[in-house]
């Protein structure tokens, strides 16, 4: 479980996240909406542990461990993983090596994993070097597949992805988050669902990803405040009809 309590965050001495409370239970995936600059990526980066996002109040607890001030790699080892929107290029580091780094001691078949996201022809290329939007997404998903994180943070997984790849990206995320579960001879569907452990937090502007990944809840971040927490479709419809203007009122109410 991820538990965030009264989190306050500064970036370059400016408060960018205010009194955030968020709880994601095992098996749950939340969508994160909000206008540009509202703090969505900052929230993900803070959960991942990027030190420039300075926590000035509150705490982040994952699997019962207070990670508020833990370095990035300790959080990764605990099972937090991230799919970046614009990851840096690392010259001379092959995609294959990156996947091996992600898998650490676990034995993975890099080719088989890459096959699943149609990425075999990129394994010998430097990671992210000259990758298109869609290629970056597939590369990030491949890394998460190898990493087998328990909490996965997705920063705009559908941006820059064409229609054809959207299906692949959407279905892969659903798979990663155990949303595509099936009953087995010994386990009923209800039991399989109950035993899901993976957690997700997905930033999305368009909501396209929701066509592939059923999310349990949606959060709306406005100006650094989680102003709304509700059914994802309801929030999307609300934004569609009234725009983010309405969030101002809701934010005021929340205070």
């Amino acid at each position: 479980m991820l538990l965030i309590e009264d989190l306050q965050v500064e970036l370059a001495e400016k408060t960018i996240l205010k009194h955030i409370d968020l709880e994601i239970k095992p098996g749950e995936t939340h969508a994160l909406f909000g206008p540009n600059g509202s703090g969505k990526t900052s929230l993900l980066m803070t959960i991942m542990g990027y030190p420039q996002y300075k926590v000035t109040g509150g705490k982040i607890v994952f699997k019962g461990v207070d990670v508020t001030h833990s370095p990035i790699n300790e959080r990764a080892e605990l099972g937090i993983g991230m799919s970046y929107q614009r990851p840096p290029t690392i010259n001379g580091l092959k995609t294959r090596q990156m996947v091996e780094i992600c898998s650490k001691d676990k034995k993975v078949n890099v080719e088989a994993l890459a096959e699943a996201v149609n990425f075999n022809s990129f394994l010998e290329r430097d990671i992210n070097a000259g990758f298109s939007g869609g290629e970056i997404k597939r590369s990030e998903l491949l890394q998460l597949m190898a990493q087998r994180a328990d909490l996965m943070l997705f920063d705009e997984p559908e941006s820059g992805v064409d229609m054809e790849n959207m299906v692949l990206v959407g279905e892969t995320i659903a798979e990663l988050l155990q949303k595509e579960c099936r009953s087995t001879p010994t386990k009923s569907m209800a039991q399989v669902r109950r035993e899901r452990t993976k957690m997700g937090l997905i930033i999305t502007h368009t909501g396209y990803i929701l066509d592939y990944v059923p999310v349990d809840k949606a959060q709306l971040l406005y100006n650094g405040v989680l102003s709304c927490s509700s059914n994802p479709r309801e929030i999307l419809n609300c934004i569609g009809e009234m725009g983010y203007e309405e969030c101002v009122r809701c934010t005021l109410e929340k205070r």
């Binding site: 991942m48 370095p71 790699n73 990764a76 001379g92 580091l93 780094i101 992600c102 430097d126």
Partner: peptide, 22 residues
């Protein structure tokens, strides 16, 4: 940081980048 978020320590990440650079 990118490499640390994939589980490497800061030192491991640094030497991985240096090796790639070379």
């Amino acid at each position: 940081f990118y490499l640390m978020s994939r589980g490497l320590s800061e030192d491991e990440a640094t030497s991985t980048i240096v090796r790639g650079f070379l």
